[in-house]
Amino acid sequence: MKQLIDLQLFAAEDNLTITTDLEPAISVDFTSRIAENIDELRQILSVNELTPMASGTLIKAYKLAKANSPAQVGEGEDIGLTKITRKLAWTKELGLLKFRKVTSAEAIQKIGSQKALNDTDAKMVSELEYQVLDDFYTNLATGTGTATGVGLQAALANAWGAMSVYYKHKTVSPIYFVSSLDVADYLGSAQLTTQTAFGLTYIENFLGLGTVVVSPNLAKGTAYATAKENLNGAYIPSGGDVASNFGLTFDTTGLIGMTHSVITRNATVESLLISGVMFFPEYVDGVFKVTVGGATASTGK
């Protein structure tokens, strides 16, 4: 004889914690904050949008050159051809930046989760952001233009003049990347209104020349100048196979992937952070290395 089974006897208990309740809030919080920071940097550089690309994609920078200067001709005569060449300057593979950190149970017990886990995660995040900037300055250093001047104001004015010649057929917005030490020297005799984003200090319309980004990554006496229109950005989306295999949490932008895992065999919490963001100039001859004369050199880019 068949009996009806009371399904209520097998129903889940009220207030039972299930897997969907265990959303990795810390990962969500960090990925959102990092994505916002990177978006702030994108806005400073005036990069319209970051282009999603597959891991291993080759990023390419070029150099434009005029091969000849044909003579002017008289009325009705054939006009000589002006030849412009676009040559490859460098290629760089777009790869993943990976950071991993492990926090022990003893560290959490001793000083609490905030200091042991969250604060150290924040430091790891800052290392990733530093690496994104450092790679960007390395790409700027491939620029082939030059300018020089005694003191910051004269150096940037001469860079502006050099860019005006290079971009004479375009309307562009100049941007300069300057060592914080050179700006500190300038601030000894002047006052400036600054803003901050992505951990960077920047100055809008510095002396009417354009945007100045102040960076501790750069060596004293060395700056870079280019047009915002010459800057691009690309990234490897954090979703897809990598996210599914490593359980990465990522925000809607897909710029950053992060996960926290409890490792029971050794009583630790592992933090994994993955990103693939790169900023770069499209044309290296549109980037000018600026020498700030009178400055004592220091280590840096």
Rank of each mutant, 00 (worst) to 15 (best):
K170Q: 15
A107C: 10
G286S: 01
Y166K: 15
I175H: 00
T291S: 15
L231G: 00
S261M: 11
T120S: 15
K301R: 14
A155G: 01
P70K: 11
E49H: 10
I111S: 11
V28L: 14
L81G: 10
Y283D: 00
V28A: 13
S55T: 14
V125N: 05
L152F: 02
G76R: 13
A243D: 11
V214P: 00
F279H: 04
T146E: 10
T91N: 10
Y167Q: 07
S275N: 06
P174E: 01
T103H: 04
L272D: 09
A141R: 04
S271V: 09
I59W: 07
M53Q: 08
F279V: 05
M53E: 08
V284P: 03
A159M: 02
Q8V: 13
V47N: 01
L156D: 00
T103Y: 03
A71M: 12
M163T: 04
T226S: 08
G151H: 05
K301M: 11
I236F: 04
A141F: 07
N48Q: 13
P281D: 07
L140E: 04
Q114E: 13
S173T: 13
F280E: 01
T196W: 03
V213W: 00
Y283S: 05
N205P: 04
A105G: 09
Q114H: 12
N118P: 07
K110E: 09
E270G: 06
F280W: 04
F246P: 08
L192F: 02
K168P: 06
E75A: 14
S261R: 15
L231N: 03
G286K: 01
A227E: 01
D6R: 00
T299N: 15
D121M: 14
S275P: 06
